[in-house]
Lab assay of single mutants.
Amino acid sequence: RKWEEIAERLREEFNINPEEAREAVEKAGGNEEEARRIVKKRL
Protein backbone atom coordinates (compact mmCIF):
# COMPACT_ATOMS: atom_id res chain seq x y z
CA ARG A 1 0.00 0.00 0.00
CA LYS A 2 1.19 3.47 -0.88
CA TRP A 3 0.46 4.85 2.60
CA GLU A 4 2.86 2.37 4.14
CA GLU A 5 5.63 3.51 1.78
CA ILE A 6 5.00 7.13 2.75
CA ALA A 7 4.97 6.23 6.45
CA GLU A 8 8.28 4.37 6.02
CA ARG A 9 9.91 7.39 4.35
CA LEU A 10 8.66 9.71 7.10
CA ARG A 11 9.86 7.29 9.75
CA GLU A 12 13.36 7.24 8.30
CA GLU A 13 13.51 10.95 7.53
CA PHE A 14 12.28 12.19 10.91
CA ASN A 15 13.42 9.23 13.05
CA ILE A 16 9.93 8.69 14.48
CA ASN A 17 8.29 5.42 15.40
CA PRO A 18 6.17 3.56 12.83
CA GLU A 19 2.94 4.26 14.71
CA GLU A 20 3.50 8.04 14.64
CA ALA A 21 4.35 7.90 10.97
CA ARG A 22 1.21 5.90 10.16
CA GLU A 23 -0.99 8.28 12.16
CA ALA A 24 0.41 11.28 10.28
CA VAL A 25 -0.22 9.64 6.90
CA GLU A 26 -3.77 8.68 7.94
CA LYS A 27 -4.51 12.21 9.15
CA ALA A 28 -3.16 13.57 5.88
CA GLY A 29 -5.38 11.23 3.90
CA GLY A 30 -2.38 9.68 2.18
CA ASN A 31 -0.95 13.03 1.05
CA GLU A 32 2.82 12.90 1.59
CA GLU A 33 3.38 16.67 1.74
CA GLU A 34 0.58 17.11 4.28
CA ALA A 35 1.86 14.17 6.33
CA ARG A 36 5.31 15.77 6.37
CA ARG A 37 3.81 19.03 7.71
CA ILE A 38 1.95 17.13 10.43
CA VAL A 39 5.13 15.34 11.53
CA LYS A 40 7.17 18.57 11.53
CA LYS A 41 4.57 20.27 13.76
CA ARG A 42 4.83 17.44 16.28
CA LEU A 43 8.62 17.54 16.52
Rank of each mutant, 00 (worst) to 15 (best):
R1Y: 09
R1F: 12
R1K: 13
K2P: 11
K2Q: 12
K2C: 06
K2N: 13
K2S: 13
K2G: 13
K2L: 15
K2M: 14
K2W: 13
K2Y: 11
W3N: 06
W3I: 05
W3H: 07
W3E: 05
W3Q: 05
E4Y: 09
E4P: 05
E4W: 13
E4T: 09
E4N: 09
E4I: 08
E5H: 06
E5V: 08
E5R: 07
E5S: 06
E5Q: 11
E5T: 06
E5K: 08
E5G: 05
E5P: 04
I6L: 11
I6F: 03
I6V: 08
I6R: 02
I6D: 01
A7Q: 07
A7N: 03
A7M: 13
A7K: 03
A7V: 12
A7P: 01
A7G: 03
A7C: 15
E8N: 14
E8A: 14
E8H: 09
E8W: 10
E8G: 09
E8R: 15
E8K: 14
R9E: 04
R9T: 06
R9A: 08
R9Q: 06
R9Y: 04
R9V: 05
R9H: 06
R9I: 07
R9N: 05
R9S: 08
L10K: 00
L10G: 00
L10S: 00
L10Y: 00
R11A: 11
R11K: 08
R11Y: 06
R11V: 13
R11N: 04
R11G: 07
R11M: 12
R11F: 06
R11E: 07
R11T: 09
R11L: 12
E12A: 15
E12R: 15
E12V: 15
E12G: 09
E12Q: 15
E13N: 03
E13P: 00
E13G: 03
F14W: 04
F14V: 01
F14Q: 02
F14H: 03
F14R: 01
F14C: 02
F14P: 00
F14T: 02
F14L: 04
N15Q: 12
N15H: 13
N15T: 06
N15D: 10
I16T: 03
I16N: 01
I16P: 01
I16W: 01
I16H: 01
I16C: 04
I16M: 06
I16L: 09
N17G: 13
N17R: 12
N17C: 09
N17L: 12
P18N: 10
P18M: 14
P18T: 11
E19Q: 13
E19S: 10
E19P: 04
E19W: 14
E19I: 10
E19M: 11
E20V: 10
E20N: 05
E20H: 07
E20A: 08
E20T: 08
E20R: 03
E20Q: 08
A21F: 02
A21V: 03
A21Q: 00
A21I: 05
A21D: 00
A21T: 02
A21P: 00
A21G: 03
A21W: 02
R22K: 11
R22Q: 10
R22Y: 14
R22P: 01
R22A: 10
R22C: 06
R22I: 12
E23N: 11
E23M: 11
E23V: 10
E23I: 11
E23A: 11
E23D: 14
E23L: 12
A24S: 05
A24D: 03
A24N: 02
A24Y: 04
V25N: 01
V25M: 05
V25H: 00
V25F: 03
V25R: 00
V25L: 10
E26L: 13
E26N: 11
E26A: 13
E26G: 07
E26P: 00
K27C: 05
K27L: 15
K27E: 15
K27G: 06
K27F: 12
K27Y: 10
K27Q: 15
K27A: 14
A28P: 00
A28L: 01
A28T: 05
A28F: 02
A28H: 02
A28S: 09
G29D: 13
G29F: 14
G29V: 09
G29K: 12
G29S: 11
G29N: 14
G30I: 02
G30S: 02
G30W: 03
G30Y: 05
G30F: 04
G30P: 01
G30R: 02
G30D: 02
G30K: 02
N31F: 06
N31G: 03
N31D: 14
N31V: 09
N31K: 06
E32N: 03
E32P: 07
E32I: 12
E32W: 14
E32L: 10
E32A: 08
E32K: 03
E32V: 08
E32D: 03
E33S: 09
E33Y: 14
E33M: 11
E33K: 08
E33V: 10
E34P: 01
E34R: 10
E34D: 08
E34C: 04
E34K: 09
E34V: 10
E34A: 09
E34Q: 09
A35R: 00
A35T: 02
A35I: 02
A35G: 02
A35D: 00
R36T: 04
R36E: 03
R36Y: 04
R36I: 08
R36V: 06
R36Q: 04
R37Y: 04
R37W: 05
R37N: 09
R37K: 11
I38V: 07
I38E: 05
I38L: 14
I38P: 00
I38K: 03
I38F: 05
I38T: 06
I38C: 08
V39W: 02
V39N: 01
V39A: 05
K40P: 02
K40N: 09
K40I: 15
K40Q: 14
K40L: 15
K40G: 07
K41Q: 13
K41L: 14
K41D: 14
K41P: 03
K41V: 09
R42M: 15
R42A: 15
R42I: 15
L43M: 09
L43A: 06
L43D: 04
L43T: 05
